[in-house]
Design a protein around this nucleic acid. Structure first.
Length: 827
RNA sequence: GCCGGGGUGGUGAAAUCGGUAUACACAGGGGACUUAAAAUCCCCCGGGAGCAUUCCCAUGCGGGUUCGAGUCCCGCCCCCGGCACCA
C-alpha cells in the first residue's frame, strides 16, 4: 500500500531519481552502434555555451529548455533524437576573466565546465553525456587545427596585413566590441590602430553562394535577412581615373561605384587616408598637411572612425586625376569618410547625387554638378540636397544626355570599358574572416614559418600542436602573442627541409572552434578522424538548430562557410549545415533587460531548489512566444506550479484510486481538441499557447471538483512530458508502464472525428454589432440560423421596423443581418 | 539613417486565410473548507451608464476599404533588437 507521503508531489526527489535513472540506463545516450544504425535519426542541436564562472544564466536555460522541448517532442513521436551539448571554452572572454581574477584558464575552465555540467543535468535536458565536446580539449582542437590545414592546402587561408585595435595600456589587441567610443573598455586608454600580418579565411570567395542559398534554406526570416544584409552585395562598376601629370607612368586610381551613370558629375576624387596611392598623388606643397591628417586618422580607432560624424573632415592632396568620362582634371582629396576596407578604398565623389559627397563638397567648397534630372527638372535646376533616387534622365552628361539612369549605367560602363577605364563589378560588405588572435587562450595556428619553405602546415601526424602551459600569459607591448615568448616551444625544425624554423605564435579565433562542433558530436568516439563518413551521412546535416539571434551573422555564417568549403573539398556530402534554424527570443525581467549592474539577474538554482526543474521549465516556456522571448515576472511561476500540482493530484489521487471508467464525452472531445492543438503548436515553437491549452483542458476535466478518469489524464501526461519530463516519467510509471515514457512513440494521436462539436454558438450581428448568440447544430444552413436568430429576443428587438437588406452567414461562426429603416407603410 | 520585431486589461499575454477582442496565467476582491495558516475548490475582475434586460466606448494616433478591421491599405508616433559614412 502506498503511504500518504508517497502520494505527495516531491519535485526534488522525483527529479533526482529520474536523472539518476537516465544516466544509469543510458536513456539519452547513444552507443557507437546505435549511432551507426539509428532508424529515424534526428539531430537536435542547440548552441553550446561558454562556461563562465558565474554558471548558467536564465538566458541559457531558456534557450536550452526550448530546444530540449523540441527534441523530447520529436522523440515522443518516435524519432531517434540525438541531443548533444558541449563547451565553447576558448577565447578572449575566458582569458580576460582569468586575467581579471589572477587565475590561469587551464585551471579555471575545468571547474566551470563541471559546474555547468551539474546545472545542465539539473534542468533535465535530454543530453547525450557520452558525446560532449570541449573546444579546449586537445582531442578536439587537434581537429580544429586539422581544419585550418585543410583550408590552407585548399588556398582558402592566406596571410595579409590588416589593421587592429591596439590598447597601449593593456598592451593588447582588442576586438571591436571591446572598444567603447575610442577607448579601451577595461582601462579607458585611447585605442590606436596598428597594422599586423594576420591569417584570413577567404569567405568572400563564397559570398555569392552563401547569399544564394539563403533563398531556400528553412531558417527564421530575421536570421536570413540579417545574413543577407551582412553579406551586402552591391552591383556596380570599377572605374579608373588616371592620375594627371603623371607622365608615362599611367598610374590610375580605381574607384568602385554603384552609380557609373553619374560619372559626369564626379567633380573630385577621395582616397581613404591609408590608400597606397596617397604618397604618389600628394604634391610637395601639401605633404605636411596630408601627413598630419593621416596621423590624426590613425590615432583614431577603427570603431570611432566608423561613427557618423556631423561634419566631414579631409585635406586636399594637391594632386589631380582625369575624369575618364569628361576628360577634365579633378582634385584628389583624402578623407576619413572613405574607408579602406570597402571597395577599392577610393571613390569618385558625385556631390550632386550622393549625400555624403554633397556634405563634403559644401564643407570644402567643391563644385556640385547635376547629372540626373527627374520630371519637371532640367540641367540647370539647382540642387539643395543630393538627388539620390536611382531613376531619372541624364543631363550635363555629353552624348548620354536623355538616357534613363539604367540605360546610362550600361552604356557608360561599356564605352569606358573599351579604353580599359571601367569594368562591371560586384562588391561585398562582407570581409574575409580574420582568424588570427594575438592572444594565449586558443588553439595555436598549425603553421611553421621557414625562411626557405615559407609557411608550412604542421603535418597531420604532428597534430595537435598543444597549447603550452604558460604561467604568465599576459600580452605585452610587442603586440605579438604571448606564445612568442615561449622559445623552446616555437623553435622547431621545418617539417619540409628540416632547417631551423619557428611556429606561428598566433592562436585562432573562437569562432573557428564553434564553426564545426556539430560535425564532431556524433563522431566523438573516433580519435583518428574528425568526423566519420558513415555516421556523418546518417546524422547530418543537423535537423533543427535552435539558438539566439546574437549569432545570426558571425557563428551562423562562419559555420555555413566552413561546411560549404569542406563540401567542396570532398569531406562532406552536404553544403548547408542546418536544415532548419529557429531563433529564440530574449528573456527580460519585469520589463527591464537583465544585467549584473542593475542587479536584476535571475539566479536559477534557488528557483529550481524551491519549485523543481519541471516547474521552472514549464514557466519559462509559458512566459511568451518562444521565438519572441518573454517577461519573467517573479510571481508568475505560481501558475505553472499549480498546474503541475493539479495534474499530479489528478493522476495520483490523495484518497482512492484513479477511476478507470469511460471518459465523459464532453471531456473526451476537449481532450482530442487539446491533443490536436498541442501537436500543432509544439513543433511551431508556440509553447506558451500549447501550455495554455493543456491548462484549459485540465481545468475542464476537473471543473466543479469532478475527478478525471484514467483515460482523460493519461494522454495529458504525454503532452506535458516535453516540458516537465521528470514528472511525466514518474506519472507514467505510476500509471503502470514499464520503462521511460520517452522510449517508444508515446505521443498521443487525436481522432479528428472526436474533435468536432455537436452544437455551434453563432454570433448574431445586426449591422455588424453583436446582438446575441444562438446555438445551432454544427453545419446548420443559413435559413436555419436566420430562423433561430429571429427568435432571439434581443436580435428581434433590433430588427423591429427594419428591412433586412442583406444576410452574411459564416457557418458555425457568425450571422450578420444588414438592415435599414423600413419604408413607411403607404408612405 | 537603414533593416527586423513590437505597441491589446492592473501585469505577462491570447486571437492575424478580416468574422463573438481580452483564451491561459499572475496580481486583486468575495466565498467554501480550516482553531489558524498553507494548499485546494467556487464566484467576480477592460472603462462608463443602469436595479436590471441592456446600451455606449475601448486593441499606440489619424484617415481609408468593407456588411464587418486588433487583423488589410495610406500617413504618423513610440518602444525593443541589429547594422550603420558600404560609395
Amino acid at each position: 500500500m502506498p503511504s500518504n507521503a508517497d502520494k505527495a508531489y516531491d519535485a526534488a526527489a522525483i527529479e533526482h531519481r529520474w536523472q539518476a535513472r537516465w544516466d544509469n540506463e543510458g536513456t539519452n545516450s547513444f552507443t557507437l552502434n546505435e549511432l551507426r544504425t539509428a532508424a529515424r535519426p534526428f539531430f537536435n542541436l542547440m548552441m553550446f555555451p561558454y562556461p563562465s564562472a558565474e554558471g548558467l544564466h536564465v538566458g541559457n536555460i531558456y534557450a536550452f529548455t526550448g530546444a530540449d522541448v523540441h527534441g523530447r517532442f520529436k522523440r515522443l513521436q518516435g524519432y531517434d533524437v540525438f541531443e548533444p551539448i558541449g563547451f565553447d571554452a576558448f577565447g578572449i572572454h575566458s582569458e580576460n576573466f582569468a586575467l581579471k581574477i589572477g587565475a590561469h584558464p587551464m585551471r579555471l575552465i575545468p571547474a566551470n565546465v563541471q559546474n555547468f555540467t551539474r546545472q545542465l543535468r539539473r534542468i533535465g535536458g535530454m543530453f547525450d553525456w557520452d558525446h560532449t565536446v570541449d573546444t579546449t580539449d586537445p582531442a578536439y582542437y587537434k581537429w580544429t587545427q586539422w581544419l585550418f590545414v585543410q583550408f590552407f592546402k585548399s588556398g582558402l587561408a592566406e596571410q595579409k596585413e590588416a589593421p587592429v585595435n591596439w590598447c597601449p595600456s593593456c598592451m593588447t589587441v582588442l576586438a571591436n566590441e571591446q572598444v567603447i567610443v575610442g577607448a579601451c573598455e577595461r582601462c579607458g586608454a585611447g585605442v590606436e590602430q596598428r597594422f599586423i600580418r594576420q591569417w584570413f579565411f577567404k569567405i568572400t570567395d563564397y559570398a555569392d553562394r552563401l547569399l544564394e542559398n539563403l533563398r531556400h534554406i528553412d531558417w527564421s526570416d530575421t536570421t536570413r535577412k540579417a545574413q543577407w544584409n551582412w553579406i551586402g552585395r552591391s552591383v556596380g562598376a570599377e572605374l579608373r581615373f588616371p592620375v594627371a601629370d603623371d607622365g608615362a607612368d599611367q598610374t590610375e586610381v580605381a574607384v568602385f561605384t554603384t552609380r557609373p551613370d553619374t560619372v559626369f558629375g564626379a567633380t573630385y576624387v577621395v582616397l581613404a587616408p591609408e590608400h597606397p596611392l596617397v604618397d604618389a598623388v600628394t604634391s610637395d606643397a601639401r605633404r605636411d598637411e596630408v601627413e598630419a591628417y593621416r596621423e590624426r586618422t590613425q590615432a583614431l580607432d577603427l570603431v570611432a572612425r566608423k561613427k557618423v560624424e556631423k561634419h566631414k573632415t579631409g585635406v586636399f592632396t594637391g594632386g589631380y586625376c582625369i575624369n575618364p568620362a569628361t576628360g577634365k582634371r579633378v582634385p584628389v582629396w583624402i578623407a576619413d569618410y572613405v574607408l579602406m576596407g570597402y571597395g577599392t578604398g577610393a571613390i569618385m565623389a558625385v556631390p550632386g547625387h550622393d549625400e555624403r559627397d554633397f556634405d563634403f563638397a559644401q564643407a570644402f567648397d567643391l563644385p556640385i554638378t547635376r547629372v540626373v534630372a527627374q520630371a519637371g527638372e532640367d540641367a540647370s535646376t539647382p540642387l539643395t540636397i543630393a538627388y539620390e533616387y536611382p531613376t531619372g534622365t541624364l543631363v550635363n552628361s555629353g552624348r548620354y544626355d536623355g538616357l534613363q539612369v539604367d540605360e546610362a549605367k550600361e552604356a557608360i560602363v561599356a564605352d569606358l570599358a573599351a579604353n580599359r577605364r571601367a569594368e562591371a563589378k560586384v562588391t561585398y560588405r562582407l570581409h574575409d574572416w580574420c582568424i588570427s588572435r594575438q592572444r594565449y587562450w586558443g588553439p595555436p595556428i598549425p603553421i611553421i614559418h621557414c625562411d626557405h619553405c615559407g609557411a608550412v602546415p604542421v603535418p597531420d601526424e604532428d597534430l595537435p600542436v598543444v597549447l603550452p602551459f604558460v604561467e604568465d600569459f599576459r600580452p605585452d607591448e610587442s603586440g605579438i602573442s604571448p606564445l612568442a615568448r615561449v622559445r623552446d616551444w616555437y623553435e622547431v625544425p621545418c617539417p619540409e627541409c628540416g632547417r631551423d624554423a619557428t611556429r606561428e605564435t598566433d592562436v585562432s579565433d573562437t569562432f573557428l572552434d564553434s564553426s564545426w562542433y556539430f560535425l564532431r558530436y556524433p563522431s566523438t568516439d573516433f580519435d583518428d578522424q574528425p568526423f566519420d563518413a558513415e555516421i556523418t551521412r546518417r546524422w547530418l546535416p543537423v535537423d533543427t538548430y535552435i539558438g539566439g539571434n546574437e549569432h545570426a551573422v558571425l557563428h551562423l555564417l562562419y559555420s555555413r562557410f566552413i561546411v560549404m568549403a569542406l563540401h567542396d573539398m570532398g569531406w562532406l556530402h552536404f553544403e548547408e549545415p542546418y536544415d532548419q534554424f529557429r531563433a529564440h527570443g530574449l528573456i527580460i525581467r519585469e520589463g527591464a533587460k537583465m544585467s549584473k549592474s542593475k542587479g536584476n539577474v535571475i539566479v536559477p538554482d534557488p528557483i529550481i531548489e524551491r519549485y523543481g526543474a519541471d516547474t521552472f521549465r514549464l514557466y519559462l516556456m509559458f512566459l511568451g512566444p518562444f521565438a519572441e522571448g518573454g517577461d519573467y515576472q517573479d510571481r508568475g511561476i505560481a501558475g505553472p506550479h499549480g498546474f503541475l500540482h493539479r495534474l499530479w493530484e489528478s493522476v495520483v489521487p490523495e484518497d482512492g484510486d484513479l477511476p478507470e471508467t469511460a471518459a465523459d464525452p464532453a471531456v473526451e472531445r476537449k481532450l482530442h481538441q487539446t491533443i490536436k492543438r498541442v501537436t500543432e503548436q509544439v513543433p511551431a515553437l508556440r509553447y506558451n499557447t500549447a501550455i495554455a491549452a493543456m491548462m484549459e483542458y485540465l481545468n475542464a476535466a476537473r471543473a466543479g471538483g469532478r475527478i478525471p478518469t484514467r483515460s482523460e489524464v493519461e494522454p495529458l501526461v504525454c503532452l506535458v512530458a516535453p516540458f516537465a519530463p521528470h514528472m511525466a516519467e514518474e506519472l507514467w510509471q505510476r500509471l503502470g508502464h514499464e520503462g521511460s515514457i520517452f522510449d517508444g512513440a508515446n505521443w498521443p494521436a487525436y481522432d479528428p472525428a472526436k474533435c468536432v462539436e455537436q452544437q455551434a454558438r453563432v454570433a448574431v450581428q445586426v449591422n455588424g454589432r453583436v446582438r446575441g448568440t444562438v446555438s445551432v447544430p454544427v453545419g446548420a444552413d443559413r435559413d436555419t440560423v436566420v430562423a433561430e436568430a429571429m427568435n432571439e429576443p434581443n436580435v428581434a428587438r433590433h430588427l423591429e421596423g427594419m428591412d433586412v437588406r442583406r444576410v452574411i452567414h459564416i457557418p458555425d461562426r457568425l450571422l450578420n443581418l444588414v438592415v435599414a429603416q423600413a419604408a413607411a407603410v403607404g408612405g
